[in-house]
Design a protein around this nucleic acid. Structure first.
Lengths: 341, 341
DNA sequence: CTGAAAGCGCTTACAG
DNA sequence: CTGAAAGCGCTTACAG
């Protein structure tokens, strides 16, 4: 690989001049610029980012930290990633997906390595040790999700509270009085639990109580087989329930399949709505599920914008954004049966 | 951030000695080692990977190149990634997912940046320009997938040829004579087309002809909605067909749903088997699809092993591995109907 | 076993 | 507008 020095030699200029013309960091005469550019082309020169990073302290690489070895990627997580990567590219950065457990030590190792300019966290726990670690460091970061205490922490997140409340009120309008929330489990209790689940359970409990409804909670694994398991359990344990809030994206289609295998008709016997899921997943089931769609594209983009604004010193405000899910109707929502089955 | 020099000062030794103790690159007396380690702890020292990379030419980061902005991640692709990342970690490397189009220029920019030690390619096209670029460079690489001409190229791939042949013979055993292959489209014709689709079409055409069967090909987008579209098209255009090879993972459940919405019973009217898909996807449909499961975990692991063996100079052989899909039965496979519907 | 020094490929004050 | 030189944080022959 040709180095900048090689280019300088060939063009008969100094190393510094090559740097100035590449970076447009100082005025360079047209004639000199031409010589340098010709030399670069001749040698097929490309700037070594490691050398540059050491001198400048910037690699222009951002890491999206995802505990991929612990949590399987949901389709919605994939959208977060692709949308974030896209936006990063537009703004001149490379965003890469960096698999890493929710572990303060690992984060600090990465951020002190100098290999990345900033990090975006996903799958945030209420007492996430990574956030504490980052708050004490100088490396810019942003969360997609949020911790229990959000003071001073830049984040963007789904507004689970308002979404769940709206979903419950939709069930009420349809005459349902007995609801179940199905989720993917609270995760690591030591870390305060997985944010979306913890918040959703809380508001589900509060709102059902306040509206005088019966509300129970079930959990299963994040897979289609998990959904089928959940359906069996649901049929056995909740014969009176007519409305299900499904907040376990990957289990959704399996759950619907399992209900039907057990002889339930949707929505005549049971109504189901997916929470914070995607059109692609809900249309895998027959009938297609109604869904509150996660604003994944928007949040991915905003999370990256938040981070880059700080890196580029474009903003010193502290963005804390909540975005609601949007409702899309589906054939699994109907009026409550007079008497189930 | 404390530097190695800071540690040396505090421990009253030279910079070199600190490096020797950290890297175990030269013998260090126990006493000196203790002093250095104490100083490191005191300062919370962490080695800056950029400085190290510049001196050593190694970052211990590997990039899995995936055109994430062009191709949506399938669940099987996710498995490739997590399995590869896991194996890389076991062997002392960080594997990150680097979104990048099938573009020689972009690859060369990355590999000459010095930020990664090697790359693994996915979504390989028959005439993939990235492979030509990498073959001419000094950066180690491996493919998950393969090009048309594989001479001198290290790769691991699904054995589509033998898998498709077995699937066809299974249909024959069940009495089917009229088959359709559904795929996700050939992709970029300029690049020779997407390897799995090109190879599968070829062998499907050859084997059906050789066995005296009728064989047609349909393509649709990689989504559940795409699957429902395909089902409509199938019902309209292929009234005689009784067997479907579904090689479009994300469209699979939507296709099954769409067939049933059109009044078909599975497998009484039509049999369907998924090719190179996953248990998780096929169990989203009701009934669950039979499937030839992609050996994604194994291939992800082997792809990384291939790359790291070269990086660590453990092997100078050229691995070229093909692995068959394994069959898992499902309720969508049955004997051919006497007369359809 | 330990250290002084050159070097990895860049950037950037400073001087002219 | 151009250049010589110091410096970013490490590693590693070389010398002792």
């Amino acid at each position: 690989m040709a180095t900048m020095q090689d280019v300088a030699n060939l063009a008969n200029v100094s190393l510094a001049t090559v740097s100035f013309t590449i970076n447009n960091s100082k005025p360079v005469s047209p004639k000199t610029r031409a010589k340098v550019e010709a030399a670069m082309k001749d040698l097929g020169y490309r700037r070594n980012a490691v050398g540059s990073a050491l001198a400048r302290g910037r690699t222009h690489v951002l890491a999206l930290l995802y505990p991929a070895l612990q949590h399987r990627f949901s389709p919605t997580s994939v959208r977060f990633f692709t949308s974030a990567a896209d936006q990063a590219r537009l703004r001149g950065y490379n965003l890469v997906l960096w698999p890493m457990s929710n572990d303060a030590e690992a984060v600090s190792e990465l951020t002190s390595s100098g290999l990345v300019d900033g990090v975006v966290l996903m799958e945030v726990q209420l007492d996430d040790p990574r956030v504490a670690e980052l708050s004490g460091s100088t490396v810019p970061f942003a969360l997609i999700g949020r911790t229990r205490d959000t003071a001073g922490i830049p984040f963007v997140d789904v507004d689970f509270e308002s979404t769940v409340e709206k979903a419950i009120d939709r069930f009420i309008q349809l005459g349902h009085t007995d609801l179940v929330l199905v989720d993917g489990g609270i995760g690591n209790q030591l870390l305060g639990g997985y944010g979306p689940v913890a918040r959703t359970r809380k508001v589900f409990g509060e709102v059902t109580a306040q509206r005088g409804l019966s509300g129970a909670i079930m959990s299963g694994v994040h897979s289609s087989a998990g959904g089928r398991e959940l359906a069996k359990e649901f049929v056995a344990s909740h014969p009176e329930t007519t409305g299900v809030l499904m907040m376990n994206e990957q289990a959704g289609p399996g759950f619907v399949a399992g209900l039907q295998q057990a002889g339930y008709r949707l929505p005549q016997d049971v109504s189901v709505v997916a929470i914070a899921s995607s059109l692609d997943i809900v249309s895998m089931s027959e009938p297609e599920m109604a869904v509150y769609i996660s604003p994944a594209d928007e949040l991915g983009r905003l999370g990256v914008d938040t981070l880059i604004d700080r890196l580029d010193k474009l903003s010193d405000t502290l963005p804390q954004l909540l975005i609601e899910c949007s409702y899309s109707s589906g054939a699994t929502m109907g009026t409550a049966p007079k008497r189930k089955k």
